[in-house]
Design a protein around this nucleic acid. Sequence first.
DNA 1: GATGAATGAGAATTCATTCAT
DNA 2: CATGAATGAATTCTCATTCAT
Lengths: 196, 196, 196, 196
Amino acid sequence: MAQLRRALVLDAARAAFFELGLEGASMREIAKRAGYTPGAIYSYFSSREEIYATLLGESLLRLNAHVAAAPGDGTPAERVRSKASAFFDFYRENPRDLDLGFYLFQGVRPSGLTRELDAPLNGQLRAALQPTAEALRDLGLDATAGEAEVTALFAHMVGLLVLIHTGRIRMFRQHAPQLLAQYLEQLTERLQRPGH
Amino acid sequence: MAQLRRALVLDAARAAFFELGLEGASMREIAKRAGYTPGAIYSYFSSREEIYATLLGESLLRLNAHVAAAPGDGTPAERVRSKASAFFDFYRENPRDLDLGFYLFQGVRPSGLTRELDAPLNGQLRAALQPTAEALRDLGLDATAGEAEVTALFAHMVGLLVLIHTGRIRMFRQHAPQLLAQYLEQLTERLQRPGH
Amino acid sequence: MAQLRRALVLDAARAAFFELGLEGASMREIAKRAGYTPGAIYSYFSSREEIYATLLGESLLRLNAHVAAAPGDGTPAERVRSKASAFFDFYRENPRDLDLGFYLFQGVRPSGLTRELDAPLNGQLRAALQPTAEALRDLGLDATAGEAEVTALFAHMVGLLVLIHTGRIRMFRQHAPQLLAQYLEQLTERLQRPGH
Amino acid sequence: MAQLRRALVLDAARAAFFELGLEGASMREIAKRAGYTPGAIYSYFSSREEIYATLLGESLLRLNAHVAAAPGDGTPAERVRSKASAFFDFYRENPRDLDLGFYLFQGVRPSGLTRELDAPLNGQLRAALQPTAEALRDLGLDATAGEAEVTALFAHMVGLLVLIHTGRIRMFRQHAPQLLAQYLEQLTERLQRPGH
DNA sequence: GATGAATGAGAATTCATTCAT
DNA sequence: CATGAATGAATTCTCATTCAT
């Protein structure tokens, strides 16, 4: 019962956030959309931060599900491409989830929430990259090298996503997915080259 | 005269922003630092947004200067590394400028200013990547391929900078500059490989 | 049964008040400590005021017990000192009870409760001063004079307690108990002086 | 100009406080009475605390003026009575000033104001007792004894004022001024007695 | 007797902006 | 050009209390 209503508030928060962005999704706005008075929200979430953290956690679950659903039965090189692309596409197709992902370290200063919730959320993010990391290891990389490679790949995807997100990509008249494909191509080729 | 005073306001705004961040640099704060009353600021800038846009333009000028100052007299491969690293290091060493760069599309909704100011600002950003693009062409890339490569490189740098900025990079226990060096290494090596 | 549960709520209220003070002891807090929901409290007390009034009545009972326990077998002068000091020490050692004593006329405006509960509470307060008044009469004072003297003594103690409580006593670098001892000394000496 | 408007806000605050007490005199209420929006108040006072502190400072000034105006040309014993009574009467006749005096340590927790403003306010309070202290010294008391005596006297007055204020004095069917007169009588007599 | 849910009023404070002077 | 004054809307959050179930 309470769980249902909590979900209702969360729906309202998600909608508000997705429509109005961070600034617009105030407690007032969320309450209005949920059909509540602002005070009532606090029965379900103890602070604005908690709402956002919940939303972000949920978003990361969707991300992980999306990555898990990507084909994982080909060659290691194919799996690198498949899993990394799944990660990338999730955020490309759901730009608000990217906003959400950026939320905790962009807009949030005063809250003590960051510290407490940071660890599990980071864990969820790591988990979403895990399949890619495993595929890289199957290509022959050791733990250290795999870590470096997955970090570089993660950075590359984040950069592309930011460029898409901010519209800066048009500046270069390039398509981000194609750029990612090239990066992955070169990556797998490089790792399979003799002498590596 | 007016130009001088406008510069004075801008100095105050820059100082406020660099010390207090986005949240802390209110019109009140800027005015106080400039020795003005809040209302007076509006003689020089028509909105808070315009101040930030001006600040961003100025930041991009500094970026271009930094890139121009980087050594440009080695081999093309060396120049790619030199110029790209200059770009990267500028933002790594001046994280507030990165904040500034992200500002206009992150927090700003209501302003119609973005559109008008977007073009020149984009131009300045392009300019900062121009030396790198030229060095890439000197490595034998045609216009189209060069464009793709510089975009990919730009994305990679942006991604790394975001990871540094948000502290997420610690998660992977990797150093960003090293990752960029590897990326540049592989890039130049690939472009110089026979058959390319 | 109901009486037991009422006591349970009261325990929670007392604990909350003694730990968190007036501000912190909200209905929510009291309910939480009692293992109830806020609404349930209203089965036992019709308002927050009533809880505090009940708490005050109980506090006055403890006060009376404390005074009763003080030695009453010496000379009248000794008994004045003994009983008055017991009164004083109770509040000095239990500052929250003093808070409670001040509560009803300090913070409370809207309640009509004060009037109804005032009489019995006043009675309890009087009772706590009764032993002192009797000892004074044993020193030879008639009813009227005894009344005046016990009132003056009461005022003196209240004044000292307020000074302790608010920290203002440090301003004068004096110790309250010592000041009370002097007052009692002079009082008994004066009453025993020939010609009185 | 600004000073005038500040005074206007202060008038509104005083009126609100005197009519509605501490709880009722919210920023909303003060603003409404001053004909302002709540935000406008912050041009004149930086916080609710500052308003109350100003009100209290002003009250203490009136207290000091009242004490200064009391006759100071009789014998030391007469001056003790005159000055102490002036102190007492001020608060007896202006009970809201007493409320104000109790404010800073009763209702105020969260503010950092107490510490900063406490010292000067304490100083003003001391000053109001100074004439009495001097008259006591003229009766032959040394600094230490005078300090003790003025503290005891202060406590006695505070106690009586609290009893008046809370209505508890009726309980004893005594008049406070008369009780103070008796206290002062005994005090001066005691100090003038041979052997002292 | 108790719950769970919600209300509605209220708190202090901050802000970009406007505008008569 | 600049001020001083003020607006008005916004912010998050807390609380005693009510009431259908």
